[in-house]
Design a protein around this nucleic acid. Structure first.
Lengths: 129, 129
DNA sequence: CATCTGTTATATAAAATCTATAACAACTAT
DNA sequence: ATAGTTGTTATAGATTTTATATAACAGATG
């Protein structure tokens, strides 16, 4: 598994889980229909509680990244179904403070775009829509 | 004052304070040498505790955005002194999850660049380096 | 000296995070 | 059928983070 939880981080475990699974999807390592480990299995693997995993899965479900199935557990949704029109609004709110900081820290627009582009392509290369 | 704290937000007050002051600097509304309200004054204005403001100021100081002066209180640092070479590393870590999400949600690289550029320029227009 | 700075200390309350156990309904496989 | 999976729900407790309340101190200002 590609999950690496940092227990010293100030980012809550369930958020780290959510972020890394989304990154896995974007990278193309987790494809449509693929099954995630059960909440109990993953919890045991990482050495955390079942509810912490469940919280991450619930958030991923609410955001359309996965589908929950009583039988098969958590299943990766299709990229088509993940697409969401009003996502730009939420993105703007979250990314705004980072850009303000980047400007103050002396990054030019070109540097920022370069950085963003590199990261974006590090994902889009693996997964195809 | 341009500060608008959302008490219902899941983002802690001291983080909101920090973000909005950085945004103010990036927008050019807060210029080098300008004095921020004292911790007591700002706390009273917003209706929060002195220590919550102090925590925000301390973080801003640690990150080089402001200078603390026993006499004058918190003073905006110069953009030159804010600049930091190893900032890109921290930025990458924080912005990475958002980009993965943007990709999954169907944003193309062009859309993302457009969005980023707009936000960046909304700052760089006001403040000149 | 009175009044303003930031700073430090202590105590408390409230909320978020994480864990621990247990149980339930739905499904699968032996 | 029954044992073993799923997710889900409920309850309880511990820990950490966040925010508040009060008080006091040193340094600077008028």
């Amino acid at each position: 598994m590609f999950l690496a939880i940092d227990f010293q981080s100030d980012i809550p475990i369930y958020i780290q889980l959510k972020q890394q699974i989304i990154a896995g999807i974007a990278r193309g390592e987790l494809k449509e229909g693929e099954e995630l480990p059960s909440v109990r299995q993953l919890a045991q693997d990482i050495g955390i509680n079942l509810h912490t995993v469940n919280k991450a899965y619930s958030l991923l479900k609410d955001d359309g990244f996965i589908l929950m199935d009583r039988r098969k557990g958590a299943v990766i949704n299709s990229l088509e179904n993940m697409a969401e029109d009003d996502f730009k609004f939420r993105l703007r709110e979250e990314i705004n403070p980072l850009i303000a900081q980047a400007f103050c820290k002396g990054m030019t627009e070109e540097e920022l775009q370069l950085e963003i582009g590199e990261i974006y392509r590090s994902y889009s290369q693996g997964a195809e829509r």
